[in-house]
Amino acid sequence: MKTIKVLGSGCSKCIQTAEKIKKAADGMGIAVEVNKETDAETIMNYGVMRTPAVVIDEALVHSGSVPAEADIRSWLAE
């Protein structure tokens, strides 16, 4: 099971990102746990300056926008 964190201050794009990932994972039949991380200090520690950002199993894979469907699928497939 993959642990996925969506980093961001809670703006609408972060919510969109989290939902998009959940939907993609459901579609692919992969078990994931998606959490939204809003704490400024935590976001800083990942070195992220542009939100929303996506962290999968502690590795930062994306930052600065709602990710594209294709990108999400390729991360989940790994």
Partner: peptide, 12 residues
């Protein structure tokens, strides 16, 4: 909504 992460990114 990015001003906090940017602030921290610069500061750190």
């Amino acid at each position: 909504c990015s001003s906090i992460p940017v602030f921290l990114g610069f500061t750190s």
